[in-house]
Each structure stands twice: as structure tokens, then as C-alpha cells.
Write a protein that binds this DNA or RNA. Structure first.
Length: 275
DNA sequence: GCCCAGGGATGCG
DNA sequence: CGCATCCATGGG
């Protein structure tokens, strides 16, 4: 997508494939807020503010090259949407979330965030992650960074309970112990299959959470996470009572192939917002 | 008070 | 294997 940048701004002049509301509220990220008609998003120890203009958007940030990658601005979503529009049941979801882009998020933050997301609701997930940042993350000028692995390793299970994680507190604690034995930089170089197997060795990481990490951190677009909303959508579209999420995921990955992750985001956002 | 949430672990057959 | 049950806690 066409964009220009300098030391502290990125300018986007195409509203058809970039909409901060769609990008941030479609459930892929939990650290953002909407204030004074502007979206502010946080990733790791970085921050960006998105301001709407008549002919596009301006992203204000001290780290433009980081956020060009984060928003995957080189990807052409008109091509992706055109390809997916051959499926009739995607027409309305794509219209509804027309400006969605799948973010390229940090691996450690994504693993931790989606362990917390399991069988949980989005407002509570956001609140828990924010508390973890305040408690263990580095203090920046006007926000707290997501903690590093070293910082979060100092936490106890009780710390996580106090952040509102419930029974996920001990899972997260156990996962941090397991991560001591792995180098996440090295994991980045593994094959997609090996990455998936690695993720599932972590506590609190099953098929769905692993699929989210594959899609949102590794950018593997053949992933199709199946949560309760996608399960409801499947039952709706195919008039079934199927509850086997692995089967549902397999059905859609065979249908959408390398466009699976994009299709999943349009569908998730549409069904969650329209029940 | 009830059902549900971007599910996973465990145990039982 | 497949399936049932349990799990903390707050939103609606």
C-alpha cells in the first residue's frame, strides 16, 4: 500500500485498506485506546498515535520503520480482498471490516497475551494485560511498556492472580519457566510446523492460542484460529451443531489456503460485533 | 443469579 | 483416540 514517512510520521492516503478502528478492534491486539477521536496503540516498548485526515491517516510515532512493519503497510489488501470475495459468505464481513490489516506483533507479547485470552472476554483481557505492564513493564514517558521476558520472569503466580488472570496465572507462570530453556530468536528461524509444535509445549497454549500466535506474530496466513465466535459462525453458515474446532479449522484452511488468516479476521470481527 | 468469554488441561472410557 | 468435566473471574 502506498505510504510515505519521515522521522516521526507515516502518511497513508488510502482509506480503503487501512482503518484503525477495524485494525485495532478486530480482536488481534489488546493494548490500544481511543481518546479525543484518535487511536493510540502500543507494541512492546513502542507507541503510535493514528489521526484521521480527509484523504487518509497520519501515524505519529518515534519509530516509523517499526510501525511500517507492524501495520504491514507493504501488503496489498485490495488483492487479498478481491481474492476472498469469490466466497459469498465473506461479502458482508469484508464490507464490515474493510480496513482490517493483520498486525505483525512481537512474539513474546503475543504468546503471553493469548494465553491470557483463553476462555476470557476482551475487556477483561485488556485490563489484565495493562496491569501486567504497570506491574512489570518499563515506565516510559506516558505509558508502561510490555515487560521483557527477564522482567516477567520475576513474577510469581500470586502476582498474576492479582492482575486478574484467574486460573491462567499458574499456566503463565509455568510457561515462563519453560521459556527459560528456549531462545525465541531461534524459534523465529524454525519451519511453521516446528513453530506450532514448540508453541503447544507451552502451558495454556492449545490449538487456538497457537494458531493466533502463528497468525499474529509469525505472519503465517494459512492459520485459521477457531474460537467460540468462529464456532458459532460455522454452525450458522453450515447449519450444523459441530463443536470439533480442529475439524472446523481444517475445513477453512483447505478452503482459503494462504488467505485463511485474513478470512478468519473478517469473519471473527463481523460475527463478534453483529452477534 | 445467570450465562458467557478469541480454551486448555486432565481424566476416564 | 473421543468425549466430559473442571477451571477463576468479571462483563452483560
Amino acid at each position: 500500500m502506498n505510504h510515505k514517512f519521515d522521522n516521526n510520521t507515516i502518511k497513508i492516503k488510502d482509506k480503503t485498506q487501512f482503518n484503525p478502528k477495524h485494525i485495532l478492534e478486530c480482536g488481534q491486539i489488546f493494548r490500544y485506546k481511543f481518546e479525543n477521536n484518535e487511536y493510540i496503540v502500543y507494541s512492546g516498548d513502542k507507541k503510535a498515535k493514528i489521526v484521521e485526515k480527509n484523504d487518509g491517516y497520519i501515524i505519529y510515532t518515534d519509530n516509523p520503520t517499526y510501525f511500517i512493519n507492524f501495520f504491514d503497510l507493504k501488503a496489498d489488501y485490495n488483492r487479498i480482498k478481491t481474492n476472498l470475495l469469490q466466497f459469498n459468505f465473506l461479502v458482508e464481513p469484508i464490507k464490515f471490516g474493510s480496513g482490517i490489516r493483520i498486525l505483525r506483533q512481537q512474539l513474546f507479547e503475543t504468546i503471553i497475551s493469548f494465553i491470557i485470552s483463553a476462555n476470557n472476554n476482551i475487556p477483561r483481557i485488556k485490563n489484565s494485560i495493562e496491569q501486567i505492564c504497570v506491574k512489570f513493564g518499563a515506565k516510559k514517558k506516558d505509558f508502561y511498556a510490555f515487560p521483557t521476558f527477564e522482567q516477567l520472569s520475576k513474577a510469581t503466580t500470586l502476582d498474576f492472580v492479582e492482575c486478574g488472570l484467574g486460573y491462567r496465572a499458574s499456566q503463565l507462570f509455568d510457561t515462563l519457566k519453560i521459556l527459560k530453556f528456549f531462545n525465541l530468536e531461534k524459534v523465529q528461524t524454525m519451519s511453521p510446523e516446528a513453530k506450532y509444535i514448540f508453541l503447544k509445549t507451552l502451558k495454556g497454549v492449545g490449538d487456538k492460542v497457537a494458531s493466533c500466535v502463528m497468525l499474529f506474530a509469525f505472519g503465517v496466513s494459512t492459520s485459521f484460529p477457531v474460537d467460540t465466535w468462529i464456532n458459532k459462525m460455522y454452525n450458522d453458515v453450515y447449519d450444523t451443531t459441530e463443536t470439533n474446532r480442529e475439524k472446523i479449522s481444517k475445513h477453512f484452511t483447505e478452503l482459503f489456503k494462504e488467505y485463511s488468516g485474513f478470512a478468519q479476521q473478517y469473519l471473527f470481527y463481523y460475527y463478534k460485533e453483529n452477534k
